[in-house]
Design a protein around this nucleic acid. Structure first.
Length: 287
DNA sequence: AAGAGGCCCTGATAGC
DNA sequence: TGCTATCAGGGCCTCT
């Protein structure tokens, strides 16, 4: 589900709600996420203040007052919900949920603050919460990730050199987090549409001008998605349950069989599998 | 080293 | 109604 823009929205929502707030208690209902929660998971949180929440790529980083960090990934289906405390100010009755209603299954982790709790829900359990003890450990944990699309290290020269002798198709590289981190399956198709580049083209066959297009449009698509509050395909919502709006701006994703939106293009959108992931593109302007 | 493929897991939907 | 197959926004691992 969540690509960089969605994770950024979650980060912003979390900072609004829990920054400088103290954790009162933690309830774990299911330890079996992609990375199993350690037995002593709670002790790192309880009584600690959340200093701030950062994001790198599709990862959230919770910084706590005890200098412990929690690295969070939402996987395919992870969501974080805000549940407000009821009017009696007691934690025993938590039936007053924010909209939309909290799902009744797969609420694996609950973190309680004075006036509300945040709940981690994840049906497929591809996400995780990982305790990170210091900066060095964090650096090591994320070192396999390439630059974010907005980083100065992600530039035309870098892209062009990286693609030299690479025979894999360009779509796969946009999804390759070691090349560029934060782009997922939806935005990969959207980026290539704006570039007018066919997703099956081998990376080594792209010239510098096309590499520059990839750079510009990666930034353009992700920034515009952040501005619109992310995308909602099935279940992406921000912390207060509000859906993102970016899906209304999809040019190709989930539009198979429909007319190409590009001005003066008579083509239509095809859906084909690339490495078992759905890929959408125009049969005419993405030659 | 690079690339292809399988796997982790649940839920929604389509087809019979 | 109920079965089965397929697909879903991610990332890691293994094999060649």
């Amino acid at each position: 589900m969540p690509e960089l823009p969605e994770v950024e929205i979650v980060k912003q929502s979390l900072n609004k709600m829990v920054k400088e707030k103290r954790v009162q208690k933690v309830i774990i209902r299911n330890r079996n996420l992609r990375v199993k929660l350690p037995i002593n998971f709670k002790k790192y949180f309880e009584k600690q203040k959340i200093i701030k929440i950062e994001r790198f790529s599709k990862y959230l980083i919770l910084n706590m007052s005890n200098d412990i960090k929690c690295l969070i990934h939402l996987g395919m289906s992870g969501t974080i919900h805000l549940v407000k405390k009821d009017t009696n100010n007691t934690m025993t009755n938590l039936s007053f949920y924010s909209e939309p209603k909290l799902p009744n299954k797969h609420n694996h982790i609950e973190i309680f603050f004075k006036k509300f709790k945040i709940v981690y829900n994840d049906p497929r359990r591809f996400g995780f919460f990982e305790i990170i003890k210091n900066d060095e450990q964090l650096k090591k944990r994320l070192k396999h990730l390439g630059p974010e699309p907005f980083s100065s290290n992600f530039n035309t020269e870098y892209i062009f050199l990286y693609f030299k002798n690479k025979k894999k198709n360009i779509k796969n590289f946009l999804l390759d987090q070691g090349f560029v981190s934060g782009i997922g399956n939806i935005y990969a198709s959207e980026i290539l549409f704006l570039c007018e580049i066919n997703p099956f083209i081998k990376a080594c066959n792209l010239n510098k001008k096309e590499c520059k297009k990839i750079l510009i449009n990666s930034q353009k698509v992700l920034l515009s998605a952040i501005e619109k509050g992310g995308s909602s395909i099935r279940d992406f919502k921000n912390l207060s349950g509000k859906k993102g709006e970016f899906q209304k701006n999809f040019n190709v994703y989930d539009r198979q069989g429909m007319r190409c939106k590009r001005k003066n293009c008579v083509g239509h959108i095809l859906k084909k599998n690339i490495s078992n992931r759905s890929t959408f593109f125009c049969n005419t302007c993405q030659k």
